[in-house]
């Protein structure tokens, strides 16, 4: 198997699940890329009655998905989503995985091929605590970025601003944004005060 995309081990807390669930209409079809142990899909199945599928590369996580009673396809995201037909999903979620993908542009393109809408979440590198650590001359380590520089799976970290410029340049229209700091939603200076960012987007028509 090729490169390993490791899902950030700090599993999303319930408020984060809720942030994503709030965007997912009941009874829809959802693909969760890098679905980890399947707990987000399980949650969406329980509260939104979705038909869900997960994609995961890690053996232990695939096993946990089966234990959680969610559909999981063991596959390497970096090699694309060729098992999935174009337009076959209502939502594709990439939760806390975008920053660890080697082919960022490729996966966003694939997401919008197989689905009407994409949802991503990622740690905001522009969060003030991260900036502070960098200003003191060190790579940031935090709850959302729990790695040392030498063992991090994160290769493509970005700020809210960076992601929005990326979307603009790639014909991706942002439909909604939600910025969180722990359990709290951040509205003021989100690129500075937000720890975790959520975006819902579609292909620009």
């Amino acid at each position: 198997m090729a490169t390993n995309v490791v899902t950030t081990p700090t599993s999303l807390s319930r408020p984060d699940f809720a942030a994503i669930a709030a965007w997912v209409k009941p009874g829809t079809k959802v693909l969760d890329l890098g679905c980890g142990d399947g707990s987000l899909l399980r949650y969406l199945q329980d509260v939104r009655n979705i038909r869900g599928y997960g994609v995961e590369i890690d053996d232990a996580n695939v096993l946990r998905c089966l234990g959680n009673g969610v559909n999981v396809i063991q596959s390497d995201l970096e090699s694309g989503l060729s098992s999935f037909e174009s337009g076959s999903f209502d939502y594709v979620i990439l939760s806390q995985t975008l920053q660890a993908m080697k082919h960022t542009e490729g996966i966003v393109r694939e997401m919008l091929r197989v689905s009407c809408e994409g949802i991503v979440s990622f740690p905001n590198f522009g969060y003030w605590r991260n900036r502070l650590q960098v200003s003191f001359g060190h790579m940031p380590i935090s709850e959302a970025l729990p790695y040392q520089w030498f063992d991090t799976p994160n290769t493509h970290l970005c700020t809210l601003n960076d992601f929005e410029v990326f979307c603009h340049q790639h014909g991706v229209r942002v439909l909604e944004r939600r910025v969180m700091n722990g359990d709290h939603q951040v509205t003021l200076f989100p690129n500075l005060l937000g720890m975790l960012a959520f975006y819902r987007f579609e292909q620009q028509k």
Binding site: M1, K29, R51, Y53, D59, V62, L63, C65, L66, N71, V72, I73, Q74, S75, S83, F84, E85, S88
Partner: peptide
């Protein structure tokens, strides 16, 4: 998957 069946796959 094309038939929207419940399916899991382990390699």
């Amino acid at each position: 998957l094309d038939n929207e069946l419940n399916v899991s796959y382990a390699e």
